[in-house]
């Protein structure tokens, strides 16, 4: 009961609570309110109950966008997590190479997201883009504006280029925090490089990798700006992810009620998956089933 004796620390949390209330809770409440009404304009609305949820859940385009989104996030995690750890392991441990590697790797993270889309839009164009031109010169017909497969390849390349550095930086921070004595003990025991990775580095990186996985999952699941600029959801609907479809619904068609119902379902999916990921990663290696 001692921890309840001094509650002054709660005042330090108060500013954050107020900011979160205004930036997240109040908008979320508004979305819930919109989701049960047909909004015609300011002050003109009709209560429709769960009608928009029923309509949204039966929407085939939403189902397709959802599976597309899962595929995209799954591929992103499958590629970026191991690649990020491998790059972090290969990075120099001391000397000028450390700063050089960190700055070089951090560069894609500093570029605004819509600029990333524009860069790759130009980079992969078959007529003027370096990547598109070279690939087409090799006799491989590559055009992300015409072929869904090419659009997906371009998106994946862009995403991996843009966000793997985040995983690298987090994994590298985790690796640098491991005390030297662990490596010395492993050396004395004659542990192989794999055994050192499996039993020392990987368990010690669990915390940062949890954060990396959660961040990458959430970011990739909520992706909007880059594919919007690069493909606009096309060709056809092949790269129309949930957020792109949501914006089309809310801004393009001004269907605020269905868009709000859609947003709530989207939010619940993200919330549930993040909770499961978090629990699984927190309990891995604790010797208990999760």
């Amino acid at each position: 009961m001692e921890k309840w004796d001094n509650n002054n620390a709660w005042f330090l949390v108060l500013p954050v609570f107020i900011i979160v209330a205004f930036s997240a809770i109040i908008p979320l409440m508004t979305v819930v309110n919109y989701s049960v009404q047909d909004i015609f304009g300011p002050g003109e609305r009709i209560f429709v109950g769960s009608e928009w949820f029923k309509e949204t859940l039966a929407n085939r385009r939403l189902h397709e966008a959802l599976w597309r989104q899962f595929l995209f996030s799954g591929l992103v995690l499958l590629i970026e997590m191991p690649l990020g750890v491998m790059i972090a392991l290969a990075m120099p441990k001391r000397g000028w190479g450390v700063s050089f590697s960190l700055v070089t790797l951090a560069l894609p993270l500093l570029i605004p997201w819509n600029v990333i889309g524009t860069i790759w839009l130009i980079f992969t164009r078959p007529d003027i883009g370096l990547f598109g031109f070279i690939i087409n010169s090799m006799g491989i017909a590559f055009d992300h504006t015409a072929s869904p497969l090419d659009a997906w390849i371009t998106l994946m390349l862009m995403e991996v280029w843009h966000w793997t550095p985040l995983v690298v930086l987090l994994a590298y921070a985790g690796l640098r925090a491991i005390p030297e004595v662990y490596y010395q003990a492993a050396k004395i025991d004659g542990a192989s490089a794999w055994a050192t990775f499996r039993y020392i580095q990987l368990p010690k990186m669990r915390g940062v990798l949890t954060i990396a996985l959660l961040l990458r999952f959430m970011d990739s699941f909520l992706i909007y700006a880059e594919p919007f600029v690069l493909t606009g959801g096309g060709p056809g609907n092949s790269t129309t992810f949930l957020s792109i479809y949501l914006v089309k619904l809310a801004v393009g068609q001004f269907d605020l009620g269905p868009a709000a119902a859609f947003s709530i379902i989207y939010f619940l999916i993200v919330l549930a998956l993040c909770f499961v990921f978090y629990q699984v990663l927190q309990n891995v290696g604790k010797g208990e089933r999760v």
């Binding site: 109040i26 409440m29 508004t30 049960v36």
Partner: peptide, 14 residues
């Protein structure tokens, strides 16, 4: 609070 489009049902929920 008209912009928040409150209804008795959602108010009760929150």
């Amino acid at each position: 609070l008209e912009w928040m489009a409150w209804t008795p049902v959602t108010a009760g929920f929150f």
